[in-house]
Nucleic acid binder design. Structure first.
Lengths: 137, 137
DNA sequence: CCGCATCCCTTAGGATACTG
DNA sequence: CAGTATCCTAAGGGATGCGG
């Protein structure tokens, strides 16, 4: 297993011609959904409990946190430990597989925060241009 | 602007406590959707035309290619050049901003393909466990 | 405290047909 | 060739209430 980055241009993967690439999409959709990146990021430094995650990820609903965690657990990216105590206690932590995503996830979030201003400006410009085209007056 | 990877653990970003982080989510959703990663990847080595992309990205519909390209263009990740000829010709290429994503995109796709087997096995195992719980017999 | 079940609305996204 | 327009279904995702 090589962890080195395929620097520069990837050989422009077949993206569906081979069965493997086709199935890879399902996996990317898992971590590419609305919340997974943030859950992974929040677990980057240590194990956390359910409500701790809920507090730290601003705007996530209880339902979506559950759904997201289940998905990540199903894929073997997050592991779940339940302690049969009262009140219940559940710990979530990254698996070794999950940890292999940390650099990339960190980079993506970093990248997004770095370019927020730039992209929002570009968007605004684009939108006014399109508006001009569509409004008659 | 530092392009170096925040290796290991990110400082577990606030993910919404600051306005910047909150807005960053919208940007991540853009490249985290179903097709963007593949479009970016396909443009990694060179400019391509519309139908060329459509051919190369297996399974994408004409509509979704249009929608995805518009979104990427709006964010300044892809640039669009239209030649007023007959038949029409439109070229798509990555902007400098778009190129800064190449390593990460390449890594993600590579990562997904690398772990397809592993994850599918984990999924299947997880599903049978859950099934056991829910089916009475 | 953790989380499942339900309701319900919104969005994503595929199929198809038509245009400059 | 490179789209737009329309229709329609499935999935996403929030709110709320209940249960161990």
């Amino acid at each position: 297993m090589e962890t080195s980055l395929p620097s520069g241009h990837t050989p422009a993967l077949p993206s569906g011609h081979t069965p493997a690439a086709c199935r890879a999409r399902e996996i990317l959709e898992r971590i590419g959904d609305k919340w997974s990146l943030y859950v992974i990021s929040q677990l980057s430094d240590r194990t956390k409990r359910f409500n701790e995650l809920k507090r730290d990820i601003d705007g996530i609903s209880q339902r979506m946190l559950t759904v997201t965690l289940r998905g990540l657990e199903r894929d073997g990216i997050v592991s779940r430990t339940m302690y049969p105590v009262m009140p219940p206690r559940v710990d979530y932590t990254l698996t070794p597989l999950g940890r292999t995503l940390l650099d990339t996830v960190g980079f993506l979030i970093h990248w997004a925060e770095e370019h927020v201003e730039e992209i929002e400006t570009t968007r605004a410009l684009y939108d006014t241009r399109v508006e001009r085209f569509h409004t008659p007056e």
